[in-house]
Computed example of a mutant assay.
Amino acid sequence: MSQAKVWVLLVLATLFWAGNYVFGKYVVAELTPVSITFLRWVLALFILLPIAIFVEKPDWKKVKQVWPTLLLLGLLGIIGYNIILYTALGYTSPTNAALISAVNPGLIVLFSVFLLKESLSKVQVIGLFVSFFGALIIITQGNILGIFEMNYNRGDLLMVGAVIVWTFYSIIGKRLLIPPITATAVSTLLAMVVLAPFAVWEGIDLSAVSSISIYGILYMFLFSSVCSFVFWNMSVRKIGASQAGIFLNLIPVFTALISLALGETILAEQIIGGLFVFIGVYLTSGMLSKRMEQVKKKKELSKGA
Results as ranks from 00 to 15, higher is better:
Met1Ser: 14
Met1Trp: 13
Lys5Glu: 00
Val6Gln: 03
Trp7Ser: 06
Val8Gln: 02
Val8Glu: 01
Val8His: 01
Leu10Thr: 11
Leu12Asp: 03
Ala13Ile: 09
Leu15Ile: 11
Leu15Asn: 05
Phe16Cys: 05
Trp17Lys: 06
Phe23Arg: 09
Pro33Trp: 12
Ser35Gly: 11
Leu39Ala: 14
Trp41Val: 10
Val42Thr: 15
Val42Asp: 02
Phe46Ser: 13
Leu48Gly: 08
Leu49Glu: 00
Leu49Arg: 12
Ile51Cys: 01
Ala52Thr: 12
Phe54Lys: 12
Val55His: 08
Glu56Gln: 11
Lys57Trp: 06
Pro58Ile: 14
Asp59Tyr: 15
Trp60Pro: 14
Lys61Asp: 07
Lys62Gly: 05
Lys62Arg: 15
Val63Arg: 11
Val66Gly: 03
Pro68Ile: 12
Leu71Arg: 07
Leu75Trp: 01
Ile83Lys: 08
Leu85Ser: 00
Tyr86Cys: 01
Gly90His: 12
Gly90Tyr: 08
Ser101Glu: 00
Val103Gly: 00
Leu107Pro: 05
Val109Thr: 13
Leu110Ile: 15
Leu115Phe: 13
Leu116Cys: 10
Leu116Pro: 11
Leu120Phe: 13
Ser121Glu: 07
Ser121Lys: 13
Leu128Ile: 12
Ser131Phe: 08
Phe132Tyr: 13
Gly134Pro: 10
Ile137Ser: 05
Ile138Asn: 10
Thr140Ser: 14
Asn143Ala: 04
Ile147Glu: 02
Glu149Lys: 15
Asn151Trp: 01
Trp166Met: 02
Thr167His: 03
Phe168Leu: 06
Tyr169Phe: 10
Ser170Gln: 04
Ile172Thr: 08
Ile172Asn: 05
Leu177Val: 12
Pro180Ile: 10
Ile181Ala: 11
Thr182Gly: 04
Leu189Val: 13
Leu189Trp: 08
Ala191Ile: 02
Val193Lys: 05
Ile204Ser: 06
Leu206Cys: 03
Ala208Trp: 03
Ala208Thr: 13
Ser210His: 09
Ser210Asp: 04
Ser211Leu: 06
Ser211Glu: 02
Ser211His: 02
Ile214Asn: 00
Gly216Ile: 07
Gly216His: 03
Phe229Tyr: 15
Phe231Asp: 00
Arg237Thr: 06
Ser242Cys: 13
Ser242Phe: 14
Ile246Ser: 06
Phe254Trp: 09
Phe254His: 10
Phe254Val: 05
Phe254Met: 02
Phe254Arg: 07
Phe254Gly: 00
Thr255Arg: 03
Ala256Trp: 08
Leu257His: 07
Ser259Cys: 00
Ala261Arg: 08
Leu262Asp: 01
Gly263Leu: 03
Thr265Pro: 01
Ile266Tyr: 07
Glu269Gly: 07
Gln270Ala: 13
Ile272Met: 06
Gly273Arg: 13
Gly274Val: 14
Phe276Cys: 09
Phe276Asp: 04
Val277Ala: 06
Phe278Pro: 03
Val281Trp: 04
Val281Pro: 03
Thr284Glu: 02
Met287Tyr: 08
Ser289Ala: 13
Arg291Val: 05
Lys297Leu: 08
Lys297Thr: 13
Lys298Thr: 05
Ser302Tyr: 09
Gly304Ala: 10
Gly304Arg: 12
